[in-house]
Design a protein around this nucleic acid. Structure first.
Lengths: 218, 218
DNA sequence: CATCCTTGCTTACGTCGTAAGCTTACGCTG
DNA sequence: CAGCGTAAGCTTACGACGTAAGCAAGGATG
């Protein structure tokens, strides 16, 4: 047994915090728990981290840093779609992250790099500054919003059809006729029900392309 | 002073909780604080409400119930746009609400009514069940996502241009060239910067119309 | 009048973030 | 090598939090 353990550092604290959130969700990330995980008292963490807010900011930026930025090979739409899918994938790996990402102002280096890359792709594709700004805002609102909703969807994707049938009691009263019918369509297998992020992604990208071309033409 | 105050009720508890969240944000909504506001001990609330989760579910549904459903006058796009704008407006009035709305499964009556209405509009406009389902999911992911991000935007809309200039130190190092240039454009007044929900709303609605027509044609 | 049920109160437990001050041990200077 | 400053971690403590368990009072019902 090592009598003097490896010393703490901001980096080590944040990595442990990330692991803790991944394994037990955001609720299990307390300063006391985090200290225990590092073999240290809670108050010792404050030597390396201003407060819990700083820990949350830090691990969000660690997550954003995991998002791969595709190379810009000239096809801006493909690059943007891959970027959105990568973000969705990473955020799904860290289910506690989207809520934090959206409800705080994040100006960590990974986030800035990520936004800068996106603006670069759009500008390279001929978007005006105004349109590029609106474009990435729309994209990200959708991607984060979709991911957060998706993670809290009550039903695991696998047995969606089964569960939809079980929910039918809610809809039996005839008060929500369209929802009832939609549920029936899903239960009967006529429609997968489980939404996929690429639907909205392509929809938005096609729309953006159209706006860019119209702006250029006028 | 009335010796016997008006008795509590689930309704009264939820309304007080809503008022409390509106006035002090989600953090100020604790069972103890809520009891104090009603002239009652915290534990007394549990006669009328299962636990705090139920309170949160309840006030979210109260907020959703404030969203006006436009009459469906045959113009589905206008109805959907008004619906999105109304949701955005209501959620902006209750800034604590979007995070709760997105990160929990809400099956309150107001929410169900709201979704049912939306499905009705889309079905009435000739969307297939599959496309209608994807459509409202995309719309809502964007509307809630946009609203939540917008609420946490660091800069009040009014003085965006001024503040953008102040942020420039962050971008001076040349590490984020596109962000720096975008900030400059905003600071110089060439582009408002402040995003507006209708941009993405119209973008999505136009895309949906296109998909519907293509599906009908094939 | 006796009973029960509803409503609200009291007390208590284990958790949380963190302020304030203390101890320990390492590295530098003289 | 002695002395000391400083950094790292520890201890204690405070005022929140959600809520389990049981109690008290008062009105309704037999």
């Amino acid at each position: 047994m090592p009598k003097s353990r490896e010393p703490l550092s901001t980096r080590r604290v944040l990595q442990a915090a990330l692991a803790l959130a991944d394994s037990g969700g955001a609720d299990s990330l307390s300063m006391r728990h985090l200290g225990r995980e590092l073999g240290v008292e809670a108050m010792s963490l404050y030597r390396h981290v201003a407060n819990k807010e700083a820990v949350l900011d830090g691990i969000v930026d660690l997550v954003v840093d995991e998002i791969d930025l595709p190379g810009d090979d000239g096809d801006w739409k493909a690059a943007m779609r891959r970027r959105g899918e990568a973000a969705h994938r990473v955020l799904t790996r860290h289910p506690w992250a989207p809520a934090l990402l959206m409800s705080r102002t994040n100006t960590g280096p990974a986030m800035l790099r990520y936004i800068d890359f996106t603006l670069g792709v759009l500008r390279g594709a001929g978007f005006s500054w105004r349109l590029a700004d609106y474009a990435w805002n729309t994209m990200d609102s959708y991607v984060y919003g979709f991911t957060l909703r998706r993670l809290n969807f009550p039903i695991a994707a696998a047995d969606y059809a089964d569960t939809a049938a079980a929910y039918e009691y809610l809809l039996a009263g005839g008060r929500y006729p369209h929802m009832a019918e939609l549920t029936r369509q899903v239960a009967e297998g006529n429609h997968p029900g489980d939404p996929d992020i690429t639907f909205g992604l392509d929809l938005i990208l096609d729309g953006l392309e159209h706006l860019r071309d119209r702006e250029a033409g006028s």
